[in-house]
C-alpha cells in the first residue's frame, strides 16, 4: 500500500510539472494557433534564472526570478519573433524550432553542456509521512505549485476581461477582432502567462531533478505536447486531467513494468485518445 501511495505522489509530482508546461502551451495554441516548439526553452530560462538567483536571494526569490524570467522572455519572443509571422504557420514552426535549438546552444555556451546541481533548500529534499508512506517533499511542492497555478488560471479566465477575451478568442479569434478588440495584446499576455508557468516549472523542476541542464526544457516538452493534445487545445482543465493521467501512467508502468516503458505507454495513450476521438467525431 505504501508503495502505491509513494508512486501516486511522485507520479502526481511529475503530472504537476507536465501541467505547468502544458497549460501555457495549450493557451498559446488555442488562442494564437502557434505551435510553440520554443516553449521548453522558457522552462530552461526559468530554471537557470532560479539557479542563478537562489544563492543570492533565497529559494523563494529564486522561484520569483524564474517566473519573471520565463514570462519576460516569452513576451519578448512573441513581440519580436512570432508577431511578424502570424498567419505564416510554417515560418512560425521553423522559427520556434530554431529558437529552441539556439536556446540550448546558448545555455551550453554560457553554463557548459553539463547539468549543474540546483541549490535546493534542505527541506525540499526531505521526506514526510503521508497515508503510511514516506513521500518526498519536492513532489508535494510541485503538486502545490500546480494546484495554485490551476486555480489562478481558472480564476483569471473566469473573472477577468482578458480571461473573457482569451476564452472567446480560443473559439473564434476573428470575431473577437470584429468586436473592436485588439487580440494581439491577448496573444502577448498568453505568451507571458505561459512563460511564467514554464519558468515556475523550471524553478520547481530544478528542485525535483536536483539539477538544471540546457536540454532540460526540450526533453520535457514532448510530454507537455502529449498532455496538450490529450487534454484538448486551449483547455486548461483538460490539460490538468491529461497531465494527471500521463504522469501516473508513466510512474506506475515504469515501476511495475520496466524503466522506459512508461514513456511508451504515454505515447500509446495519446494514440488511443486520438483514434477514439476521431471515431467519436465520425459517429
Amino acid at each position: 500500500m505504501s508503495t502505491v501511495v509513494l508512486l501516486a505522489v511522485t507520479g502526481l509530482g511529475l503530472s504537476a510539472l507536465y501541467f505547468l508546461i502544458a497549460s501555457g502551451l495549450s493557451l498559446v495554441f488555442g488562442l494564437a494557433d502557434v505551435l510553440n516548439f520554443a516553449h521548453g526553452w522558457f522552462l530552461t530560462v526559468g530554471a537557470y534564472a532560479a539557479y542563478w538567483a537562489t544563492p543570492k536571494v533565497g529559494f523563494a526569490g529564486g522561484v520569483v526570478a524564474g517566473v519573471l524570467a520565463g514570462a519576460g522572455v516569452a513576451a519578448l519572443v512573441e513581440l519580436v519573433m512570432i508577431r511578424p509571422l502570424y498567419k505564416r504557420t510554417i515560418a512560425q514552426v521553423l522559427v520556434t524550432v530554431g529558437l529552441s535549438l539556439a536556446g540550448v546552444a546558448l545555455f551550453q555556451a554560457l553554463f557548459s553542456p553539463d547539468a549543474r546541481i540546483f541549490p535546493s533548500p534542505k527541506w525540499t529534499q526531505q521526506v514526510v509521512g503521508f497515508l503510511g508512506a514516506r513521500v518526498p517533499v519536492k513532489s508535494l511542492l510541485l503538486i502545490a505549485g500546480a494546484v495554485v497555478v490551476l486555480a489562478a488560471l481558472l480564476a483569471f479566465l473566469r473573472w477577468t476581461r482578458y480571461g473573457l477575451i482569451i476564452r472567446a478568442g480560443v473559439e473564434n479569434r476573428e470575431m473577437v477582432t470584429a468586436l473592436g478588440i485588439d487580440v494581439r495584446k491577448a496573444f502577448t499576455l498568453v505568451f507571458a502567462i505561459g512563460g511564467a508557468a514554464a519558468g515556475l516549472a523550471g524553478a520547481l523542476g530544478g528542485v525535483y531533478f536536483e539539477s538544471v541542464s540546457p536540454t532540460g526544457g526540450a526533453s520535457l516538452l514532448i510530454f507537455a505536447f502529449i498532455v496538450v493534445v490529450i487534454g484538448g487545445m486551449g483547455s486548461i482543465t483538460g490539460s490538468a486531467v491529461a497531465a494527471v493521467a500521463v504522469g501516473l501512467l508513466q510512474q506506475f508502468v515504469n515501476y511495475y513494468g520496466s524503466a522506459g516503458a512508461g514513456d511508451v505507454c504515454a505515447v500509446a495513450l495519446l494514440a488511443i485518445v486520438l483514434l477514439t476521438r476521431r471515431q467519436a467525431r465520425q459517429a
Binding site: 476581461r161 473573457l164 477575451i165 476564452r167 472567446a168 473559439e171 473564434n172 470575431m175 473577437v176 470584429a178 468586436l179 473592436g180 478588440i181
Partner: peptide
C-alpha cells in the same frame, strides 16, 4: 458567430 462556450451575458460583456 456567437461564442458558444460563453454565456449570453459574457457575449454581451465582451462587446
Amino acid at each position: 458567430c456567437v461564442f458558444a462556450g460563453l454565456t449570453v451575458a459574457e457575449n454581451l460583456r465582451l462587446a
